[in-house]
Design a protein around this nucleic acid. Sequence first.
DNA 1: TTCCATTACGGGGCACGTAATAATT
DNA 2: AATTATTACGTGCCCCGTAATGGAA
Lengths: 310, 310
Amino acid sequence: MTLQQLRFLCEIVHQGLRLSQAAAALHTSQPGVSRQIQSLERELGVVIFRRKRNRILALTEAGKEIVRFADRALREVHNIRGFGDEVRDSAAGDLVIATTHTHARYTLPRVISAFTKAFPHVRLRFWQGNRDEIFQWVEGGEADVAIGTDCDVTLESVALLPYGEFHRIVVTRASHPLLKEKDLTLEQIARYPLIAYGFRSNERWKFRHVFEARKLEPNIVFSAADADVSKAYVALGIGIAILPHITYKPALDKHLRARDARHLFGTEVTHVGLKRDRFIRSYVYDFLNILSPTLTRSNIQQMLNSHAGT
Amino acid sequence: MTLQQLRFLCEIVHQGLRLSQAAAALHTSQPGVSRQIQSLERELGVVIFRRKRNRILALTEAGKEIVRFADRALREVHNIRGFGDEVRDSAAGDLVIATTHTHARYTLPRVISAFTKAFPHVRLRFWQGNRDEIFQWVEGGEADVAIGTDCDVTLESVALLPYGEFHRIVVTRASHPLLKEKDLTLEQIARYPLIAYGFRSNERWKFRHVFEARKLEPNIVFSAADADVSKAYVALGIGIAILPHITYKPALDKHLRARDARHLFGTEVTHVGLKRDRFIRSYVYDFLNILSPTLTRSNIQQMLNSHAGT
DNA sequence: TTCCATTACGGGGCACGTAATAATT
DNA sequence: AATTATTACGTGCCCCGTAATGGAA
């Protein structure tokens, strides 16, 4: 048995049972991968892939189990590499962050700025995705850290560490009648054209059910891609928008006004996603500590070891 | 990085930092091991061993950490092998049991007999040791299962699963005056010559403190190696003996009598020791279930996953 | 002298890549 | 026709084992 064989196996699985694609991803030849898998199967005496002629159809039950073991073995090997890097130079390396537009745009700039000043030799990379994708990327190992708000999919090996709160505001133009209302209500909001974001065309808008519960029909006149676009259209007078509170900064958004709407749409928790049982470079702890003072090294380790968020 | 390199590394550590000994244990040459370690150190950029000229003195701090990772990686690889064996033939394989004389002699025969009948293709091997050694062998991977009573040493990765109870009896000849006493007391026992066992010459006898607490001085006339020898000398009239209750079988020990003494010496718990995070062959579950009906597969798994007994 | 780890050197195996094959879409 | 996994084949690298070296005990 070889680490190579295990790597090949896991990569094939990772690529959706496409051997050729795995070979490409591994920068090696198709026949090499094929032979290594065969040799592994021969050595173990176990058929890992169900095939039809020369096509891989599925993992056998035994194969699935073997992949799980192999994954863990490779993870430890990866950890050794990471630990070696840490020992050589604890302030240099890579950090891949998966996050959503909102966080990238509003919560991270401050963090990045402080971090790059402290760790100029860490190469930062960003993957931007939706709230589920980003955590899946961490699970798949493509990203080291995910920063996002909630997550609907279930994750095997990613721990979600809560670090902050997230609520909604209603953003309007400076002269909007809503600003004069004493207590903001759903009924009032429903009277005005609404700019929504955060959903694909064929999905339902996240807060639609809140209105429906009160038998209200929000008048969504525009579906934006992100908070910035929403604000731009609010400024144009197209409508009002319901946005995460962090997207509104009085100093920058001079033509806009915001009203707290957490009593209508509730609060959400912002999470950091980290893959369990992975060696964590010291600068990752530092990064997270800049993101939130509550995320200390010992807190993080404790949360990773507890089974919360599995 | 190679599995070979990790294996070599762990074996050197296992052999007390003696490279030559490790090479022998791995059935390979000294230079090969030396070069592989060097190549690993070069690849990681980390010095693993502190050396003086051509002698290995110690692990560096980084080295210790790397060994921990390597151990885990190798364990997963080992698990793959074990799983492969299981899939190929779930009723054939090896089972190495570490146990004490008492268990080997009195609790296991019934278990072995039933087990070998059910699993004729499992090669059983036994390692006999004292109550601490047997669990350390499991930790070191030399044995699969340890069966013993209590354990004083702390173990990193061995779970101790309680499965039974163990108490003491006083064994005498058939005509001994102690048998006529109504309630057995320490004072009565202390009156007679005693045959003790279970301690080395320079250690103290396990139950000495029980007598001391009552200001009694037991009259130990003989120190035996095990329960069988003790019983033989009891039969000769040399003295009486305090033995585990399972060592007395009326049908076999016709010249002897036994009186329950748990109110004097308390009870102990019998444990099965299993290494955590190791793949467990199905016949091991069966073996343990024969040993004790309370050790079902699900019970065992639950106890292994909980952190009890670490 | 003996033991031990490292360096030197030569041989063999095996893993890889290129090319060819067979089967599928 | 294009894609995909497997088989065939030759080459080069690397790992191993034997022998030699240099210190230590």
